[in-house]
Design a protein around this nucleic acid. Structure first.
Lengths: 333, 333
DNA sequence: CTGTTAGCGCCTTCAG
DNA sequence: CTGAAGGCGCTAACAG
């Protein structure tokens, strides 16, 4: 079988108009007589015509691709951002093309190069840290750029996310307000995950406002995970540090901490209060829902994609969109 | 700034060869004198030339895109498959273009259309269920097709995954072998998730081999989640059914069940044994690691992408690649 | 081993 | 409101 796919020319012939007119109808561009439009649409339907995107991209030197660079897919956080992006693109002709950087700026640079080779309409990436070469490519491409997750710096075009410093600060304030004074910190390796580091800094700052400093700290070498959180809390407590609350670098770690307490028979929050970050479902399904901060990942992705499609030109001034965060009271702190 | 991006012609001029020769060097195609190749590579580097993929796709009527259709991004299972795909594509010029179907076959059909408009080198999709139109598009496209996750049917080209019926059967056998006799089932809505349904059928079959049938069943209306599992188990037990073990439709549900037992003070596995499916990290980080079946999602994604790139032509006979599954003993059953 | 010649299918520009 | 002409950047087929 495998008939040649119909092209603009076929549609044009069938509708007895020029290719150009068909093209205009498809792109909803320029004035078209209602009569003509109807004829063209019929021809398209009857042939089952599907425009060849590669040809369109070549001719217009701009494609219907949105390049998306994510640091990881292992953590549910980024798939949720991606889900938001897809939700915004669902009823548009745009398609997301994904790259995974593994939190590696050189990898980001390489992937950025291959994405730009498709002449995408826009690029979505994460954070403000880029190699000089990446930054140059992003700036000179002229296309819309969104930098996601964080908003505590100056974006190239737009930034969509929340203040991680602010979130860290709020977690400290929340615990202090509830009477905790010997507050520890359990985190994962943050050489790659800068935002976890920012939250930590905010956390220290929040404690300082109350004249406190971390009662104990433990940082796990490696990526965050439930298992890591479990082991890390065991380590922290094993050192005999006297803490009445622990802030974790994120919910994965905090859920692990919860598991440790269950195993070790530590009453939560009487003996030890736990506080996370992200507001994942799993935290809310614990026997006691986790006290944490909701980070609105889906919203970040959706907002970014919507904003990028709103205008083809970058705004005169870089723009910051704060998707905010909320304390989730829970029952562990 | 924003100099015009260099094209093949620029490189060709600088290296004093024809465009065609440059193209050959880039694509590693046809014989090239080592001398010439070196000159071309130098020119490419010095200009920072990046090939325009849209032009390449148009000229060759085939792009370096792998279209990937996933049912969902909410469940960590599919991001892990995607991670496997990306791992296999990482050192190739291929890029994944994603579509999310929300378990909707019509949505799959629509997305398939837009993906094919890019003339991708291959399509990765999920399961064997497609609309007639989708199936026609897949078959007639002539490109390589991988159908992931399940292997209990005849694929269009290749299938990569595991036997969900087999996995369901093994979970029943495992529990029977350990002496459980009053075995219940807790699942999520499977009108969309056919594979969960297949596991359930296998489970029943496994019980039947021992002359048993499910002691109680409860199906939650909606997608699987930890919270759903927690509530569903509460419902099942609330009915006063007398069960000594429960098989869940997946680990998310099973972890929720674990949480219910914790809250209700039911000893695991003495009072109630729990069994999941997938082998997620979270299950292994519980105070007692979850007894479950590992489904090798990453491997499925990676194997599929590798196989697709091995040959441009479909094999004479549809091929099935069984990535298997393993019982994870755990401590909850 | 390398060059020449024609497009790929669409969009942009300019006329009408 | 519609059409004609040209070209986007690359690759395929053939020639040498």
């Amino acid at each position: 079988m495998q008939r040649e796919a119909p092209t603009l020319a076929h549609v044009a012939r069938l509708a007895a108009v020029s290719e150009n007119t068909v093209s205009r109808v498809i792109r909803n561009k320029g004035p078209i007589a209602e009569e003509t439009r109807k004829r063209v649409i019929e021809a398209i339907d009857s042939l089952g015509y599907v425009p060849n995107r590669a040809a369109g991209a070549l001719a217009s030197s701009s494609s219907l691709i949105i390049g998306v660079l994510l640091p990881s897919l292992s953590n549910i956080v980024f798939p949720e951002v991606l889900r938001g992006i897809h939700a915004a693109l669902a009823d548009t002709p745009y398609q997301a093309m994904i790259g995974v950087t593994d939190y590696d700026l050189l990898q980001e640079q390489k992937l950025l190069g291959s994405l730009l080779a498709w002449q995408p309409a826009a690029i979505v990436t994460t954070g403000f840290d880029h190699t000089d070469a990446s930054r140059r490519m992003l700036e000179q491409s002229g296309i819309r750029i969104a930098e996601l997750m964080d908003i505590d710096d100056r974006p190239i075009d737009i930034a969509v996310g929340l203040s991680h410093r602010g979130a860290g600060r709020e977690s400290a304030r929340h615990l202090v307000a509830r009477g905790y004074r010997r507050i520890g910190y359990v985190g994962h390796d943050w050489s790659a995950d800068r935002r976890a580091h920012f939250r930590y800094e905010g956390f220290r700052q929040g404690l300082q406002e109350a004249g406190l400093s971390p009662a104990a700290e433990f940082r796990f070498e490696g990526a965050s995970s439930t298992m890591a959180g479990r082991e890390a809390l065991a380590q922290l407590l094993g050192r005999g540090g006297d803490v009445d609350a622990v802030v974790f670098s994120n919910d994965d770690m905090a859920v692990g901490g919860f598991m440790h307490c269950l195993g070790a028979g530590l009453a939560i929050p009487e003996r030890l209060a736990l506080f996370g970050f992200n507001g994942l479902d799993i935290g809310q399904a614990l026997p006691r829902p986790l006290s944490t901060i909701r980070s609105n990942r889906f919203l970040i992705g959706r907002t970014a994609a919507e904003k990028l499609l709103e205008a083809r030109e970058r705004p005169a001034e870089p723009q910051i969109i704060d998707t905010g965060f909320e304390i989730v009271e829970g029952a562990t702190a």
